[in-house]
């Protein structure tokens, strides 16, 4: 029975990483390495929570609105972080790593600021949490139901977004153009693709999706209790991008593995606190192993977009 709970919890937590990594994959496919994901997730979560809080204060009782409006607010907040990042790196051509790290610091700080405003009464967020935690409202001891059907709406949304991203990237002209921009912007530019637009849109959408991971984590996984855990989850999401070799479809099982490893310690009896922290390191270790493996094999398909991290200058005419 503990195993069923473990699987269910793994799947649940996986949504955090899935949002983060799907968003980051979309951004990275345009050639931009957004290390601001932890900040984006934090801001997204905070803005979402503040929205829930305001709705509750305004005595909105509709479950739909309590989920839909915060979700929208989170998307917008994440998107705005994406605008900031793309303005810095695409338009001003600032260094992507520095910008990303600054965005993380900024985001975590901003989230703290937002949450501070409602800290005294933040406990009431738990009241809205029930609309997040269970979509179908089925209570059953059946293992299949527990593992697959007991989750909140944001878990299923994460999987749908990941699958849709996979299809768009590989089956449509937009995806072809986006990948071309990330691989070889000069070629895409010469072929008439609007490189700047693709980079902006990909980064903004990517950040919006990643921000949803923050909202999910607080409102569903944490049951409405704010905690400063999103920064670590953000880094794990970026690691997951590498782990899944930039494929959203692979990110679904990948995020479940990460989720499982992250909570595994809690299901092992009789280990020390130090050992728990050690087990939580496993996702990072696995990412490094994957990196080593793909570097040795040198498979072209398993590599990051060729111009990842490089800002594009159109050659002066």
């Amino acid at each position: 029975m503990a195993f069923v709970t473990f699987l269910a919890s793994s799947l649940k937590l996986s949504a955090t990483f899935l949002y983060g990594s799907t968003g980051e994959i979309i951004t990275e496919k345009s050639g931009h390495l957004n290390l601001g994901i932890p900040g984006v997730m934090s801001v997204g979560a905070a803005v979402g929570c503040v929205t829930v809080f305001r709705l509750l204060k305004a005595e909105v009782a509709s479950g739909f609105l309590l989920v839909f409006l915060p979700l929208l607010a989170t998307l917008v907040a994440g998107g705005l972080m994406g605008v900031l990042y793309s303005f810095m790196t695409v338009t001003l051509r600032a260094n992507q790593n520095v910008t990303g790290l600054a965005l993380t610091t900024l985001g975590v700080g901003l989230a703290g600021h937002f949450m501070n405003g409602i800290r005294a009464e933040s406990m009431i967020l738990g009241r809205a949490s029930k609309y997040y935690t269970s979509l179908f409202g089925i209570n059953s001891t059946n293992w299949f139901v527990q593992v697959f059907l007991s989750h909140g709406v944001l878990v299923y949304l994460a999987i749908i977004i990941a699958i849709a991203t996979q299809i768009i990237l590989n089956r449509t002209r937009i995806g072809l153009h986006l990948r071309a921009v990330g691989e070889n912007p000069a070629t895409a530019d010469a072929a008439g693709v609007n490189v700047t637009a693709y980079k902006y849109v990909a980064t903004i959408i990517g950040s919006g999706i990643a921000a949803l991971g923050g909202l999910f984590t607080i409102m569903d996984y944490m049951g409405g209790n704010w905690e400063y855990i999103l920064e670590g989850f953000g880094w794990l999401s970026i690691a997951l991008v590498i782990f899944t070799l930039w494929r959203p479809a692979l990110a679904i099982p990948g995020s479940i593995i990460f989720g499982g490893l992250y909570i595994a310690a809690g299901f092992i009896k009789g280990i020390s606190f130090a050992q728990i922290e050690l087990i939580k390191l496993l996702p990072y270790v696995m990412t490094i192993v994957v990196l080593i493996f793909t570097s040795i094999v040198g498979n072209k398909k398993a590599q990051p977009p060729a111009s990842l991290g490089l800002n594009y200058f159109r050659e002066e005419r």
């Binding site: 072809l176 990948r179 071309a180 691989e183 000069a186 070629t187 010469a190 072209k300 590599q303 060729a306």
Partner: peptide, 10 residues
């Protein structure tokens, strides 16, 4: 000016 990881048709 070609994208390395694309096919000829792409």
């Amino acid at each position: 000016k070609l994208v390395d990881v694309f096919t000829a048709a792409q």
